[in-house]
C-alpha cells in the first residue's frame, strides 16, 4: 500500500538541510575590525603573557630534565623508586577513574532523566570538591582515619591501614576527581533531553537496553572527554595525596610526590625527569581533548559552555 506523496519535499530537504552542514564561512567583520595597532598591542601583550606564564614553564621542565643528557634522564626514570612511583600512580588512577565513571553516569542519569525534589541541592553537592582546597581534601580523611581520627583507634585494633597507605591515596584522589565526569555528562544529557529515551521505551526497550543502545552512543564522546580530564587530575594530584601519603619511598609515593622528594633532596635532574613524564601526560591530555573538541565539537557543545 504505497500512497503517493509529493516528492518535491525530498530533494528540497536534501538541498536545504543535509548538505549545508559544512562549516559556515568566517564572517567578515569589515568596518568592525579593530585598528591594526590595537590588534598588534592586544596580541603582543596576550602572547607575551602566555609565553611567560605557560610556554616557558613547560620548556623549563624538559630543558632541566635533559640538562645532563639523555643517559642520565633515562637512568632517573628507570631507578626502582621512580618505577614504583609510576606503578602506584597508575594503580590509583585505575581505581579512582572507573569509580567516578560509574558515579558520574548514575548521577547524570538520575538528574537529567528524572524529576525529583532536591535536585539543585544535589548538583551543588556534586560540585563541592571543586571548591575545596586539595590540602583540605586530604585533611578530611586524616581526621576520619588518622591515628587521632574518629575511626583511628578502631582501625589500628583491626590492623587496617588507610592513612599513610594506598587506600588513603585512592580516597583522596577519588575526592578531588569526584565531579569531573558528572560535570561533563550532566549538561550534555540535559541538552539532549529525554525524547529519545522515551521513544525507545514506547517501542518496547527495557531501561538497560535504552541506556546501552540509545543513551550511551549519544554521550560516548562526552564520557571520553570527562574520563580524560578525570584521569589527568587523578595522576597529577599533589596536595591531597601529599597529606595522606606519609611519603614512604617505594610504597606510598605517587609520581608528583616523588618529584617533591627528589627536588627537596636537590636531585633536580631526577625531579625534572619524573616531572617531564607528568608534563607529557598533560600535553597528551590537551591534544586528545582538543581533537575531541574539533572532531565532535557539536556533540560536546553543551559541555564546553559551562
Amino acid at each position: 500500500m504505497a500512497i503517493p506523496i509529493d516528492t518535491a519535499d525530498d530533494t528540497e530537504g536534501l538541498r536545504s538541510e543535509a548538505f549545508v552542514v559544512t562549516m559556515p564561512p568566517p564572517r567578515p567583520r569589515g568596518a568592525l575590525d579593530d585598528p591594526l595597532w590595537v590588534k598588534l598591542l592586544v596580541s603582543g601583550i596576550g602572547l607575551l603573557f602566555l609565553l611567560l606564564f605557560i610556554l616557558l614553564p613547560l620548556l623549563a621542565v624538559f630543558t632541566e630534565a635533559l640538562r645532563r643528557g639523555v643517559q642520565t634522564y633515562l637512568e632517573a626514570l628507570t631507578e626502582p623508586d621512580a618505577l614504583a612511583a609510576i606503578r602506584l600512580t597508575l594503580v590509583v588512577a585505575a581505581i579512582a577513574v572507573p569509580a567516578n565513571l560509574v558515579f558520574g553516569v548514575c548521577a547524570a542519569w538520575a538528574i537529567t532523566k528524572h524529576r525529583f525534589p532536591g535536585k539543585s541541592l544535589l548538583l551543588t553537592l556534586i560540585d563541592l570538591p571543586f571548591s575545596v582546597s586539595p590540602v583540605i581534601s586530604g585533611l578530611v580523611y586524616v581526621l576520619l582515619f588518622g591515628a587521632h581520627g574518629w575511626f583511628g583507634s578502631w582501625l589500628r585494633d583491626h590492623g587496617i591501614h588507610i592513612v599513610f597507605a594506598v587506600p588513603g591515596l585512592v580516597l583522596a584522589t577519588v575526592f578531588v576527581t569526584f565531579p569531573f565526569i558528572a560535570r561533563e555528562l550532566i549538561p550534555l544529557m540535559q541538552a539532549q533531553g529525554r525524547d529519545e529515551e522515551e521513544a525507545a521505551i514506547t517501542l518496547g526497550a527495557s531501561g538497560w537496553q535504552t541506556f546501552r543502545r540509545v543513551t550511551l552512543p549519544n554521550i560516548r564522546w562526552g564520557l571520553l572527554y570527562g574520563v580524560l580530564l578525570c584521569n589527568a587530575r587523578a595522576m597529577g594530584e599533589f596536595g591531597a595525596v601529599s597529606v595522606v601519603s606519609g611519603h614512604i619511598r617505594g610504597e606510598t609515593n605517587t609520581m608528583p610526590l616523588h618529584v617533591e622528594i627528589l627536588y627537596n633532596e636537590y636531585n633536580f635532574v631526577a625531579a625534572f625527569a619524573v616531572a617531564s613524564l607528568l608534563a607529557l601526560l598533560a600535553l597528551v591530555t590537551l591534544v586528545l581533548k582538543s581533537l575531541l573538541e574539533w572532531r565532535y565539537g557539536a556533540e560536546l557543545a553543551a559541555t564546553r559552555r559551562r
Binding site: L50, I54, L55, P57, L58, A60, V61, E64, P134, L229, A232, M235, G236, E237, F238, G239, M255, P256, L257, V259, E260, Y263, A271, F272, A275, L278, A279, L281, A282, L283, T285, L286, K289
Partner: peptide
C-alpha cells in the same frame, strides 16, 4: 595550550 594549568600537575608547575 591555555588549558595547560588545568592539565599540568601542580607539583610540576611548582618546580618549573
Amino acid at each position: 595550550i591555555v588549558d595547560l594549568p588545568f592539565a599540568l600537575p601542580t607539583a610540576v608547575a611548582g618546580i618549573a
